[in-house]
Design a protein around this nucleic acid. Sequence first.
DNA 1: TGATGTTTGTGCCCAATTTCACAACAGTAA
DNA 2: TTACTGTTGTGAAATTGGGCACAAACATCA
Lengths: 206, 206
Amino acid sequence: MNKVPIPTLERLATYLTALIELNCRKIDTVSSSDIEQATGINAAQFRKDLSYFGEFGRPGIGYDVEELKARLARILKVEQAQRVLLVGAGNLGSALIGFPVLKAQNFHIVAVFDNNYNKIGRKLWDLEIRDIAELAEVNTELQAQIGIIAVPATAAQQVACKLVEAGVKAILNFAPAILRLPEDVVVRNVDFGQELAVLAFHLTES
Amino acid sequence: MNKVPIPTLERLATYLTALIELNCRKIDTVSSSDIEQATGINAAQFRKDLSYFGEFGRPGIGYDVEELKARLARILKVEQAQRVLLVGAGNLGSALIGFPVLKAQNFHIVAVFDNNYNKIGRKLWDLEIRDIAELAEVNTELQAQIGIIAVPATAAQQVACKLVEAGVKAILNFAPAILRLPEDVVVRNVDFGQELAVLAFHLTES
DNA sequence: TGATGTTTGTGCCCAATTTCACAACAGTAA
DNA sequence: TTACTGTTGTGAAATTGGGCACAAACATCA
């Protein structure tokens, strides 16, 4: 169970989203081809992805939606609510807090930080924006293991270090910057400019 | 030049970002190991990525920053400004318009659409929010080829179809939904929930 | 019970991608 | 000129990931 490909993990999240949806629609059993239908991911791929974690279905029948959902949630560690720290109370930060899908997937943003004294003390949705200097202190209580960096690229490295000091073990980084961090900290970068560039490449000369 | 791997394209965007940065710092020549230093991407990987598009450097010397930057920009079609349509005037949309890095990479959001009559007519930054019903009409003039979907998942498919009708050939989709579109339309999905799930997987049991 | 039709889990092979390793090239210095 | 250092571009090996195809498992129905 140690060597799970990253693409497999990404797809697991997709399966889980689809299962939550199916569950709402009161569908209680699905086959791998139903999953293919719902997600666009090849049925054999789905079965292989699951096989990294054991057996989930019954030949001739398929998968129990409720059970599969629960087991995937367990694998992805979103069985109980995952607490998340957000650094950067700008528009992106605001968008993330307001994103209903995150709560549905059991990610709860429990604190927001910024270094702008005009923002500190104000509210972003229902959270008070706190001074980034208090990050470590605040997290001794909250014990969040996930942090989101939604600050300008120039501040990203510094913020990342603060998060790690505070005990964060996984970071979602929206700044176009390369973070240098201890090996035991997992980082995923989301770079809007990069995404757009890949799209633009496929365009014909304008 | 037809079969360029997607991962290569993603890295090209990273190289370009790094080169823009290096150029600002008045550095005029770099080696592939300098690029590795700056981006964390293996030097051999960098050279192979470039090799899909011809020869760029001089053995014994390295690469001319200015020239490489220009050629990458040309490859990624961001030599001239790329016009982008944004659908969804919520927090995420607002964040995207305000993101300075996009303009720096030559992506210009030139119109914003929404279906909420409370928003239509108002301004988001310096753009007037327009009725999504006018999308096709507006784009006959703008001729944007790239669209961004920043609406709830339930509306995503419908918005995507409207964008395609309006002549858009590439879509960046932030809604956790599978878009079914004609083959000649390129789609990239960004799913915050998925990113967080992959991170959560790596955590130890909390 | 036995015959038939589904659907899973997985070994195996193929395709895609990364990494290695080296010949060819450019500069420098004696 | 020759020796030496540094760096590119790329064929080939190594690794990784995806998909087929089939045995085994289960259900249904005669």
